[in-house]
Amino acid sequence: MTTDSLMMDEASSVLAGVDLLRIVRINEEIKRVVGVSFKINIMALNAIFLAKRAGTAARGFGVLSNELRVFSQDLRTSMEALTGLIYGCVNAVSVGLQDMRYARLLDEASALASDASVLAVLRRRQAQNAVHAATLSSLRGKLKRALEDAFQLVELGGVLAKSAKIEAAYGQAFAGALAQVSGEFDHVVEEIRDSLESLRRSAFFTANRG
């Protein structure tokens, strides 16, 4: 084998190892966000009950809290999609690591042996590896898009939460309670937003890939 292909092999196997680490971190972060988005569902329900009790004094808040409830359900759907994609990515990266190990061992065998069968096997293995790599790259793209969608959704949630904060001020006797609920909502949405923002910028998506 050539030094070039050896170096490429090593580089790509290091890259796959790093990828696995990155995807595991993304997974952990998404698990956290999924947990938080459960909290949001309950908060939205609370806001709806509160608005009902406040009655006409909080009509605007009531409309918004319904929107927030829809938002929290959309967020959950979006998190489920992310969880599925992440699982696929972890799997594809692990397959890639195993592929590279076998390709390396076959490559070493072909360098030592003059037998032609090993070259044929190596080529077949490389073709198979290319298919696996294409699967990973397609999953990577899907995950990136799903993260973008989730981010857009959360931006919308942020706008809703901020509007609810403003509406809370008109809640007369309920103004304090409404302000607290909308404040907490806003806080949690910001938290999710920050998490997603950092995930979008993970090197798993941005690192140079030859």
């Binding site: 190990r101 061992l105 070493e108 360098a111 090993v118």
Partner: peptide, 19 residues
């Protein structure tokens, strides 16, 4: 073991058709 495959394979293939 997998790690010694290249060494075993190459020695064997010098002697016998691995297919």
């Amino acid at each position: 073991g997998a790690e010694i495959f290249p060494a075993v394979f190459s020695a064997l293939s010098a002697e016998f058709d691995p297919t």
